[in-house]
């Protein structure tokens, strides 16, 4: 066996357990699940029959799907921008290792550990019409009663809850930048802003790629925070696709709801892969 073959066999040996786990617990169940998207499986029938693209045709005819898609995309974009911006600002503020910074890093990471449902219910109470926020500020804003802006409010709560993860990834990225680069920039008289713009941000590109893509995927798959804060309301203005899927499943339309799940997966892929490729092209080596 050549060295190259031995190396390949070694790599395969390391990969195999992970591949088996992914295949058994993710890939195969999902493939079997998505096969059901092409059936009429429902709570009302004894049999499951192959119906081709009937579920998808019905989906396209229903207005609720377009509403769900629009809401989900708006939600995901707001979360992606807000969560990354907040995470990045926090990372620059708390970049250097110190006890004070370690304390604040822990504080900003704390919301990540809270249950999304609990966070949603807490904010629902805080943002109630006669809740603590309005009373403290002496204002009368219906934060959760607007068919236009409530989706943004809920997305910002999501960003608040998970910005700690982005912060940590950005801090790790900043700390991986070679110190001599920053030092030579300082020696050359570069300002703080110039250093960030010309050195830190370009070298942070892998972290940016990771954070943007994972945030986007997470936001597309949201359910719990929205469920707790608005239950999809007012009206259906915050009814993200997963809530619509759950609603259809609860009504016993199993095949139909699975077809929506498949559509959501395709949507995530359609948005995430181009984003991933675009961001990867921007990455540079130190």
């Amino acid at each position: 066996m050549t060295t190259s073959l031995r190396a390949r066999a070694g790599t395969a040996g390391f990969l195999l357990p992970a591949l088996v786990v992914v295949a058994v617990f993710y890939l195969v169940p999902n493939l079997l699940n998505f096969a059901l998207a092409f059936t009429d499986w429902s709570a009302y029938k004894d049999t499951i029959a192959f119906t081709g693209l009937a579920n998808f045709r019905e989906l396209l005819q229903e207005g609720a799907l377009s509403t769900g898609l629009r809401v989900t995309v708006i939600y995901a974009v707001v979360v992606m921008i807000a969560q990354n911006l907040a995470g990045l600002l926090l990372a620059f503020a708390l970049e250097k290792p110190s006890r004070v910074h370690a304390f604040f890093r822990a504080m900003f990471f704390l919301p990540v550990l809270i249950s999304p449902l609990a966070a949603g219910y807490v904010f629902k109470a805080l943002l109630a019409d006669d809740g603590p926020l309005n009373r403290a500020a002496g204002i009368e804003v219906s934060w959760l009663g607007s068919t236009t802006w409530t989706i943004v409010v809920v997305a910002l709560v999501n960003a608040w809850k998970f910005m700690g993860v982005n912060m940590l990834v950005y801090i790790a990225g900043l700390n991986a930048i070679p110190g001599e680069l920053l030092e030579s920039a300082r020696t050359d008289g570069a300002s703080r802003w110039r250093t960030i713009r010309s050195i830190q941000l370009p070298l942070l590109a892998p972290a940016i790629t990771f954070n943007f893509v994972t945030t986007l995927i997470g936001a597309f798959n949201t359910f719990d925070i929205v469920f707790a804060m608005t239950n999809g309301g007012p009206g259906d203005s915050t009814q993200v696709l997963n809530m619509f899927i759950q609603q259809q499943y609860a009504q016993g339309y199993y095949g139909y709801s699975i077809s929506m799940g498949l559509l959501l997966l395709l949507l995530v892929c359609a948005v995430a892969f181009p984003l991933l490729l675009t961001l990867r092209r921007r990455e540079v080596d130190a």
Binding site: L32, A35, L36, T39, W41, A43, K45, D46, T47, I48, A49, F50
Partner: peptide, 8 residues
């Protein structure tokens, strides 16, 4: 799956 029938 179709031939298996509904688990219900």
């Amino acid at each position: 799956l179709a031939s298996c029938g509904n688990p219900m």
